[in-house]
């Protein structure tokens, strides 16, 4: 068993890291609050018994916003060095959307264009 070798970091660097982390934390809190808020709005809209054709697009829109916030702020997609992850995520989403669309089209609706 061995200890992982670590190098000491300079005072300047330490301060820099601290500053970055505070900034990061603030962003996380803001996006977290925003997401809670969006969730409440979504629940509220549903609870108010408004017209479904009005509520559904809004809820889906807010869900989309939440996904972006999640990926970019909580899962660090906005940070440097995440290009691959971004690429893979986007490819995955593209596939997922394609699959769901064909499922709806083929299995559920079933060849609407005759």
């Amino acid at each position: 068993m061995a200890e992982i070798k670590q190098e000491a970091i300079s005072q300047k660097k330490l301060e820099y890291i601290r500053r970055e982390r505070t900034k990061e934390m603030r962003q996380q809190m803001v996006s977290f609050a925003l997401m809670i808020f969006l969730t409440f709005v979504a629940f509220g809209l549903v609870a108010m018994d408004l017209d479904a054709s009005f509520v559904i697009p809004i809820v889906i829109g807010m869900a989309f916003l939440q996904v972006i916030l999640q990926f970019y702020y909580f899962m660090h997609m906005k940070d440097k060095g995440h290009e691959y992850i971004k690429l893979m995520m986007l490819t995955g989403m593209f596939f997922a959307i394609a699959f769901v669309t064909t499922f709806i089209y083929i299995v559920w609706i079933g060849a609407p264009i005759e």
């Binding site: 064909t102 089209y105 060849a111 264009i113």
Partner: peptide, 14 residues
């Protein structure tokens, strides 16, 4: 993937 399912009856468009 659906080329394995041509005879399932997906319809001509699919």
């Amino acid at each position: 993937w659906a080329h394995h399912m041509f005879t399932v009856g997906l319809g001509p468009t699919a």
